[in-house]
């Protein structure tokens, strides 16, 4: 029964991850609209169903039944597949993140991660780069100046902020001595890394927000200068899929922050049940997501050139200094 372990279980796990992430995306839009509404003293969506709870479903139907328009001058093939690339890039990242330890089912030990890769963190950073292709190829294929500008900005932004992000991850790897998520979580059994790495956490958090194009750093789609950036020519379900990629990126990023800095699925009583581990991870990720939304509602968008300057002249040196200090301290302690 080798094929059950080799193919069936990973396939089922992947399916569960994809379905859960898509559902989470739908309700993330609702939560964000509701929260941003509250931040500016509105009600947010409250018409479809009790408390507006059916709003995401109404939105989905609206997007699906919209007319499919493909502009004549676009690179058709690329134009159509790019939203798919974007969403695949954000889903694929989740494959190596453990959401709990393991449990027994039908006499088999099932680990709560799709694939336990020994360079998991590296994989996450690499795959995030792939998801970017969806955005900037889409911007190019649209054959529109605004889209192209949005695409260029997103490329520049992601390349810039991948650096401090990598430096923060390198600091973590220096402390934990491993790039495997399981080891990094195990190393945080007594003390979450946010306490050992406050600077690294800040660097990671800020560059993470840049990486997922969250407002106030949503340079690729600054409405006031670029209409809608890379997604200007997209409408209907294709736009909805771009939207989906953005929100799934946001969810995955929050889980990454929770895993790398907040101790992952560990917490009081977490060893009692795998379900409790999952709950801990979700709670931690929810806190991070709330902060993402909070920042979006509170801070106006920064100017593009200042934002790039901030990345290169402040965040990268800060990350380097943090890595150097971490390395020296680790060498002295060990």
């Amino acid at each position: 029964m080798d094929w059950i372990d080799a193919l069936l279980i990973p396939a089922i796990k992947s399916l569960v991850v994809i379905v859960v992430l898509l559902l989470a995306f739908a309700y993330m839009t609702y939560v964000e609209r509701k929260l941003v509404g509250r931040f500016v003293r509105r009600y947010g969506p409250n018409r479809a169903g009790p408390f507006g709870l059916l709003q995401p479903i109404a939105d989905a139907f609206k997007a699906i039944f919209k007319e499919e328009v493909i502009p004549t001058e676009v690179d058709k093939w690329l134009y159509v597949i790019c939203p798919g690339i974007a969403v695949a890039g954000s889903l694929i990242v989740f494959g190596v993140i453990p959401v709990g330890d393991s449990f027994m089912a039908w006499g088999r030990k099932i680990t709560m991660v799709v694939a336990d890769v020994n360079v998991g963190v590296l994989y996450v950073v690499a795959m995030a780069g792939l998801g970017l292709y969806g955005i900037f190829l889409g911007g190019w294929a649209s054959n529109n100046n605004f889209s192209l500008l949005g695409a260029l900005r997103s490329t520049a932004q992601v390349i810039t902020y991948e650096l401090p992000m990598g430096l923060a991850i390198a600091s973590i790897a220096t402390i934990t001595g491993s790039l495997r998520f399981g080891d990094i979580i195990a190393a945080q059994k007594t003390l979450p890394l946010i306490i050992l790495q406050p600077v690294g956490f800040l660097v990671y958090f800020i560059s993470g927000m840049a990486e997922i194009n969250r407002s106030p750093f949503d340079m690729p789609e600054t409405e006031n200068e670029l209409v809608s950036g890379y997604s200007t020519e997209y409408g209907g379900i294709k736009f909805a899929i771009y939207f989906m990629a953005e929100y799934i990126n946001m969810i995955v990023m929050s889980i990454l922050v929770a895993t790398l800095f907040l101790g992952g699925w560990q917490g009081p009583f977490a060893h009692l049940s795998p379900l409790l581990q999952l709950v801990w991870l979700v709670v931690k990720a929810a806190v991070v997501l709330f902060v993402f939304i909070w920042v979006r509602a509170s801070i106006p968008r920064v100017r593009y050139d200042k934002w790039m300057k901030f990345g290169w002249k402040f965040l990268v040196p800060l990350g380097l200094a943090n890595l150097a200090v971490t390395a020296v301290v680790v060498a002295l302690v060990a």
């Binding site: 360079v119 590296l122 950073v125 690499a126 795959m127 780069g129 970017l132 900037f136 190019w140 991948e162």
Partner: peptide, 24 residues
């Protein structure tokens, strides 16, 4: 696996991105 990750990170994530950037 380490080289595989680095290969994607450096070549696809950075170098090719810059090539496309230049083409654009």
């Amino acid at each position: 696996e380490f080289f595989a990750g680095i290969q994607v990170l450096i070549y696809v994530g950075a170098i090719l991105t810059l090539i496309i950037f230049a083409i654009m």
